Computed example of a mutant assay.
Amino acid sequence: MRNLILTAGLLASLALPAAAQAPQVLRIGVTPGPHAQILEAVKPVAAKRGLDVRIIEFSDYVVPNEALSAGEIEANSFQNQPYLDNQRKDRGYKIESVALTVNFPLGIYSRKHKSFDDIPAGGTIAIQNDPTNGGRSLLLLQDKGVIKLKPNVGFKPTVADIIENPRRLKFIEVDAAQTPRSLPDVDAAAINTNYATPAGLKPSDAILREDPKGPYVNLLAVRTADKDKPWVEALVAAYRSPEVKAFITETFKGSVIASW
């Protein structure tokens, strides 16, 4: 009887560490396409670090930060710093970046024209209706000599900041997720890569393409209250691992660029 009691006690003591080592569940919000694909590659690497990554897909750019702020997810991976800064300013989110991830060079696509020069005077261009991505599209058009913006407009210019538009292009602002669907109705549309890819568009199809530079590298974001928790460091290490970098390089062939 004494041996049975000792054995039972030993088994109970061994069970405690096992329970204590249960994987940390992390719900991570992403937009469909490359962000979700990359997180799938992160999952097995994160599992080795004691993290159970569960991917939650959102169809737009607004809800992932709302969900993170509300505690419905632990992290998100879909945005760049200018967009996060704008969201924090407008909505008061206590959210911050914990690591840079990948860059998606923005492209201008067309179903009607093989080059941007083919777009006629007065042609219609769809851009995103949020300040960060819409501004990014206008900066791309300025960089390519299509328009000129007011000096010192920063990273979030609007259509009202256009001071020279020699081709009298008309700009239509639509939700970023809807830009691929706008292509039949416009001469061209500025489309983020994570929306272009699911729509069957390749970066090589773009008639204008952003240079992979500047402040538009994407990031991992968490609530400010969580930024120093051990799981954050483990998640960053898993994401920025050699295995995930190799996956990005081999899968996206330069359309998505690792930041590390």
Rank of each mutant, 00 (worst) to 15 (best):
P212S: 05
F155Q: 12
N65F: 15
P131R: 02
L208Q: 03
V174I: 00
V256Y: 03
L138N: 02
R240C: 05
I108V: 15
D90K: 12
P242Y: 10
R223H: 07
A126M: 02
Q24W: 07
F247C: 01
I95W: 09
F171E: 03
V25A: 14
V222M: 10
I5V: 15
T224S: 13
F116N: 07
N218P: 00
R167T: 06
I172H: 04
Q37A: 13
G254Q: 06
V236E: 03
S77H: 14
T31G: 03
P64M: 11
D90M: 09
A8W: 14
D187V: 06
Q142H: 00
E66C: 04
V159M: 01
L51W: 09
S115L: 08
A177H: 01
N76M: 15
R54N: 13
E66L: 14
Q37C: 02
I28Q: 09
L139D: 00
L235C: 10
K213G: 09
F58L: 07
P198S: 11
K156D: 08
P198W: 07
A234Y: 03
E66M: 13
K94P: 05
L4W: 14
E66A: 12
A19R: 15
H113I: 09
K48Y: 11
P151S: 12
L139I: 02
D85Y: 09
P82H: 09
A190W: 00
V25W: 08
A221V: 14
E233Q: 15
A8K: 11
G50S: 12
P34S: 13
